[in-house]
């Protein structure tokens, strides 16, 4: 598995997203522009300029028409993928740490930072997927989080719930229409800030990554922790692979905490675990800084990781990956085919 190294950013990566077809990769970094790349050869499709601060987050709608981005300049911007034009700017009081489209691209949520006396909030915006259309200014819903600030959030199946991960290791479930908090569960340790939340393809369950060195697979309906993946390093990102029952974890000691010993690596590896058996399967090295984000190709053909080192590494899975099966999985498949 020879990775393609994407050297388009000058600073640490913050998020990577594949489009639904898995042919385009969008990446954001602290260097204020978004890059779009062809997944199969790493050629750069283009960049999106306009943000005035470090970019924290990007998401692409399910039809691959628009992308939304959030940045430290307190704005969410909507871009036309094809033309690179900025279609809309929404202003906020604080930095935007996470944006995500719902399953049909009709709504967008944004997570804003708690700072300067403003509470951390989750804001819902209406989106018209037509690049020509006038976008709605109004913030449809604002969920204020008084207890612990949200760090990540996303839409569940049917856009029924908004699920948020918090600084204090809890996960909350909100009614996506009313913004009412339905549930709040301590999923990670109290000091285990939740760094990432990514969905299964059908958005019925999700994976959280935390500074408490674990990742957890959680049921979106009742926030039940179904699986736990312990590691030996703080985690920054976790992704669920389609097609194969694996998960990918990325992390590593924070740059400021890395040991001085040269021979010792800071555990800057992407780790593969079996999703169901919770067993580690393998690791992929390459980055020379902590992994800030990992993303799995929705078509299941590869994955990409972005590091503090400023590089994106795009990997295409080879045959061995697809052939790998536990004996019990092989038996189960054989039983199903009969």
């Amino acid at each position: 598995m020879r990775p393609i190294l994407l050297q388009g950013h000058e600073r640490a990566l913050t998020q990577i997203k594949y489009n639904r077809d898995g042919d385009i990769i969008f990446s954001t970094a602290k260097d204020q522009h978004i890059c779009a790349w062809f997944a199969h050869n790493g050629e750069r499709l283009g960049t999106y300029h306009g943000h005035q601060g470090a970019l924290w987050t990007v998401d692409v709608d399910p039809t691959s028409t628009l992308i939304a981005s959030g940045a430290a300049d307190n704005t969410v911007r909507l871009w036309d993928i094809k033309s690179g034009k900025c279609l809309k700017v929404w202003d906020f009081n604080t930095a935007v740490k996470r944006v995500e489209f719902n399953e049909d691209g009709s709504r967008l949520l944004a997570v804003t930072e708690k700072r300067m006396g403003f509470l951390g909030t989750i804001v819902v915006l209406n989106i018209d997927l037509d690049p020509e259309a006038e976008q709605d200014d109004e913030k449809k819903l604002v969920i204020e989080c008084e207890e612990s600030k949200p760090t990540v959030a996303g839409w569940s199946y049917l856009s029924k719930y908004i699920i948020a991960g918090h600084e204090d290791g809890t996960v909350s479930q909100y009614d996506a229409k009313t913004g009412e908090q339905l549930d709040n569960t301590q999923v990670h340790d109290v000091d285990g800030l939740i760094t990432d939340l990514q969905w299964s393809p059908d958005r019925t369950y999700f994976i959280t990554a935390s500074k408490d060195k674990t990742a957890k697979l959680v049921n979106a309906r009742d926030l039940e922790v179904m699986k736990t993946y312990p590691t030996n390093t703080p985690l920054n990102s976790a992704a669920i692979t389609p097609k194969k029952d694996f998960i990918i974890l990325g992390g590593g000691q924070d740059a400021m905490e890395v040991t001085q010993t040269a021979a010792r690596q800071g555990k800057f590896e992407a780790r593969f675990y079996h999703k169901v058996f919770e067993e580690e399967i393998g690791r992929v090295r390459g980055h020379f800084g902590p992994l800030n984000t990992v993303a799995a190709d929705p078509q299941g053909k590869g994955y990409a990781s972005g590091g503090e080192d400023g590089y994106v590494r795009v990997h295409q899975f080879d045959k061995g990956y697809f052939d790998f099966n536990y004996e019990v999985e092989r038996q189960a498949r054989a039983a199903m085919q009969q």
């Binding site: 029952d245 169901v276 058996f277 536990y326 019990v328 999985e329 038996q331 189960a332």
Partner: peptide, 9 residues
């Protein structure tokens, strides 16, 4: 493992 997989499926 078999039990886990059955439960999952």
């Amino acid at each position: 493992r078999r039990r886990l997989l059955d439960e999952w499926l």
